[in-house]
Design a protein around this nucleic acid. Structure first.
Length: 271
RNA sequence: GCAGGGUUACUCAAGCGGUCAACGAGGGCAGACUGUAAAUCUGCUGGCUUCGCCUUCGAAGGUUCGAAUCCUUCACCCUGCA
């Protein structure tokens, strides 16, 4: 993406629910200072380690960034990551109003059967909602049964997807994990845990949560490493499932020839 | 050599005569997803021509209407005594 941005006079918007968080750098594989110096990156470090952040907020900020970049005559390049964040921007998700924090805590203490009873009593429309998923039930109550909407694909948008060989991807994930550990991931996790506690948002992510057993003394570093690799693999799987169903994505087999992509994007932008 | 314990599907591990293709966990595979999304949730995981049939529970025999479950022998592993 950086090289594309350099060739196309573009700027990058990180559509990633984790790189938005300050103080979580190594474990989120955040672009380095050197990389950011090459091309402007937007929406990195937007919130603190223990602050709430949502796809709806991301959408708003991303749209602002896109408008800003376009107004300066540059090419906005959305890169990521987090399927919901990407689609929220590309398909103009409506994102119903946020729920009340206090009420959410209350609802969270209820069991699934209790939530179902409450929903029945409120006579809420349940079509399309996964009635076995507690979070969806809570959300259904919070939004009083209204359904969110989505629009058509944003005009003049080209979606490219990189298709990597599974074996290669796995090896890269192992390498990436080792590189993070080498770069001081343990110290980063320790600092966050000491300052914000294990319940903070930043420590709930992959490459972070897996250290807990080690810090509590009942697991080894190697176990933490293995758990990170597994969690990353699982995450990659979910990302693949998410993007797989998007028929508008043009899949490119990796490794890809940069000039070819630049050429096809240039052609696309002219039409 | 003698006395005990063990051998179950990819792995670990239940089962102790029928309701067992065999609990559960892990792993694997597939899927859902609109203000927590690196989250949360779901399905499948012996084979097949899949509302049924076939082949499985170390191996080979046997008992029984019926066995992963009982008996015999053999193989390998563990423990105690020699």
């Amino acid at each position: 993406a950086i090289r594309l941005a350099q060739r196309l006079d573009g700027e990058i918007i990180c559509a990633d629910s984790w790189t938005v968080r300050r103080e979580a750098d190594i474990g989120t594989a955040k672009p380095t200072a050197e990389e950011r110096a090459l091309v402007p990156h937007h929406l990195l470090d937007a919130v603190g380690p223990d602050e709430d952040f949502t796809a709806a907020v991301f959408k708003r900020l991303a749209n602002q960034a896109i408008d800003d970049i376009a107004a300066r005559g540059k090419l906005p390049i959305l890169v990521g990551g987090t399927g919901l964040y990407v689609d929220g921007v590309l398909y103009d998700f409506s994102f119903l109003p946020a729920g009340d924090r206090g009420e959410r805590v209350t609802l969270n203490n209820l069991t699934v059967p209790e939530l179902l009873r409450k929903i029945r009593n409120l006579k809420l429309e349940t079509r399309g909602v996964d009635m076995r998923n507690k979070r969806r039930l809570i959300r259904l109550i919070e939004t009083n049964g209204s359904m969110p909407t989505r629009g058509e694909l944003r005009p003049r948008t080209l979606i490219l997807g990189l298709k990597t060989d599974p074996a290669v991807l796995k090896q890269r994930i192992v390498n990436r994990t080792d590189a993070m550990i080498e770069a001081g991931l343990e110290a980063e996790v320790r600092a966050l845990a000491e300052r914000y506690g294990w319940d903070c948002e930043a420590l709930k992510g992959v490459s972070y949560a897996q250290w807990r057993g080690y810090f509590e003394g009942h697991e080894t570093r190697e176990q933490a490493r293995q758990k990170i690799i597994k969690a990353t693999l699982d995450l990659a799987k979910r990302q693949r499932t998410w993007f797989k169903r998007n028929k508008s994505i043009r899949w490119l087999p990796a490794p890809v020839n940069l000039s070819d992509i630049v050429a096809s994007i240039t052609t696309f932008l002219k039409t």
